[in-house]
Design a protein around this nucleic acid. Structure first.
Lengths: 359, 359
DNA sequence: TTGAAAGCGCTAACAT
DNA sequence: ATGTTAGCGCTTTCAA
């Protein structure tokens, strides 16, 4: 029972040709009851299973989809990957997963490898959809694919949050709460078109709301010494009342750093995040943020790839504005209105925590 | 440039046999400078890449490792998977990932599929290592494998947290803080030998410390209505002063539910978690918990599989007691000593938060 | 130095 | 109803 049995072994033991074994097991063609019996017995005795490698070579299909994301340490990607994986599993497809750690070189190599492995399709979150070697390769090979979390450059399929619009919405929320001077905190700004798009959307949103252009703070590491960064940032921009962090982890780390600096959140500094990870609801104050549905995006992108493979009609994508929503939270606090009070400042309660004292 | 070129196409274009192409590209055998030139030119022109499927069939190896975990929505598994994946990538292996959603049937099917795909090894976190069909299959096929987060039944390789010992340590910590009546809160108790082992360890630890046997609360859903569960639980066990949750998410959800019930954590109820996910440091009060290193475990298990494949000596596994440590946090509060005060109650500060008022 | 050919496990066309 | 065989893309003898 050490080495795996092949179809030949089964045929030999059943006393028939390999074609018969194939026909019986695949239900693809006639077979006498007795023959069927003998084949099944042999299969059982040998614990036989088809080799997918042999099948793949012959069918030119692997029933495998490649998936490339920056990192599943971020629950946004983890959830998306899991959503996609379940779709694949239900359709009898397996998933090859590669995490790039935000490195474009690893990304390119990963995609090369997946192509060589003859995957039937790929699900990609690339660093920059505008110029990605891997994406070019996939296109030239006409490999069924879908982008995930990347805005599609042209008419390409993509499942993404409307980063630009969502970030603009954050600006609206700051404005409605009378914040004028804000900052944008970004991680991996250089290697993420997502972060850049959020920044641009936020800048536009601020302009539209007659707010000051947001100050930009880029951090490269994983927020280890974020406290120092934050101190310097606030020193350079003393009039800041709110910070929009490019993702929830960063936002939570910022709240923590602020606490280290004895800055009260939200009384002295409001924080808004992006992603809507569930721990944002568990902290105190709860995190105001853009809520997204990574799992659904992953599943949708997975479905899209399958329909591309099967030639069926792809699932409908949600409209750009229904891929996100704003969730009020205690980390964003209304400021007293300067001029005319339009009554909107009370629209967002400072916290959803019943034990919270009045701010 | 639509269909992928094969070695035959390259040979034809270079005007040579396929063997020559193979030799040149693999540097396995002689080739004249001129021939090399022509082959490389053809490769370039055709954008040729070897088909891994053809190679696999011939070499009986796929350079692919299968990985089966319950869910990467839990950052513990996500981190472990990523750690393993990086090890694989650096060794030129790819990873097929399947999440079972804690379902034994999916688990069995997943492993069957991986075997059929001819993976060179598998990395498994199974529901129950004592009786797992998939694990049996892997064993009978003598497929290189390592368990992850499962205690190995016999002499089998496994990378796991010492669940039993860690849980006993939690009991020690409760005892040192003068807690006598505790509860154990478990998710997926039936489908997780991890949770069971933690429970057993905790029970033993409580006994050793002359505490009351812990009350057991099992929840099956994802803590959606955990508040109701908690209310009933505390009603049935009014003398409880502390709860040990089988993982950090559950612990955080418990803190939140307690807050909904107007129960102060830790003043009225202490909570201890398990896993050490990083958000435990971001909440207030910070979460007392067992800290583990999932990423390292995943990487170690990955290394083990590779060494099994290559026949090299496997990486040394950390001793059972160095796979975890206790992290004090504000969610576990000392109770006033009943009899003789041994002075140890002050060893664990109620919070690591500088802004925290004295409890 | 190079090429022809066998064979890896499987399916499908064809023959019996 | 069943068997024989070519061929999927590749590596590797073996001859030339």
């Amino acid at each position: 029972m050490g080495q795996a049995a092949t179809i030949k072994d089964v045929a030999q033991r059943a006393g028939c040709g390999v074609a018969t074994v194939s026909r019986v097991l695949n239900n693809t063609g006639p077979a006498s009851a007795e023959m069927r019996e003998r084949v099944l017995a042999a299969v059982d005795a040998l614990d036989f299973q088809f080799s997918e490698v042999g099948r793949s070579l012959q069918s030119n299909t692997t029933r495998t989809i490649g998936c490339v994301v920056p990192s599943i340490e971020n629950p946004v990607y983890a959830d998306a990957v899991q959503g996609a994986q379940e779709v694949f599993r239900n359709a009898g497809y397996q998933m090859l997963l590669i995490c790039t750690n935000y490195s474009p070189e690893i990304e390119t190599n990963a995609i090369r490898t997946l192509v060589a492995k003859q995957v039937d399709g790929v699900l990609l979150t690339v660093a920059d959809a505008q110029k990605s070697e891997g994406l070019d390769l996939v296109r030239s090979r006409r490999l069924p694919h879908s982008l995930l979390f990347n805005e599609a450059p042209d008419g390409e399929v993509s499942w993404s949050v409307g980063d630009h619009a969502a970030a603009a919405l954050v600006a609206d929320k700051f404005a409605m709460n009378n914040h004028k001077n804000t900052g944008f905190l970004a991680l991996n700004f250089l290697n993420s078109d997502r972060a850049r798009q959020r920044y641009e959307g936020f800048v536009e949103g601020c302009a539209k709301n007659a707010m000051a252009p947001p100050a930009l703070l880029e951090v490269d590491d994983d927020g280890h010494d974020l406290t120092d960064h934050l101190r310097g940032f606030l020193h350079d921009h003393p009039d800041l009342t709110g910070i929009f962090a490019s993702n929830d982890f960063l936002a939570l780390a910022t709240i923590r750093s602020a606490r280290n600096l004895f800055i009260k959140v939200p009384q002295e500094l409001s924080i808004v995040g992006f992603d809507g990870i569930k721990v944002g609801l568990m902290v105190e104050p709860s995190l105001a943020t853009i809520v997204t549905a990574p799992r659904d995006l992953g599943a949708g992108a997975g479905q899209t790839i399958l329909s591309l493979i099967n030639g069926t009609s792809p699932p409908e994508r949600p409209s750009k504005n229904s891929t996100f929503s704003f969730r009020a939270g205690g980390s964003l606090m209304p400021l007293p209105a300067e001029s005319k009070d339009d009554g909107k400042v009370a629209a967002f309660p400072p916290s959803n925590d019943p034990t919270q004292k009045t701010a």
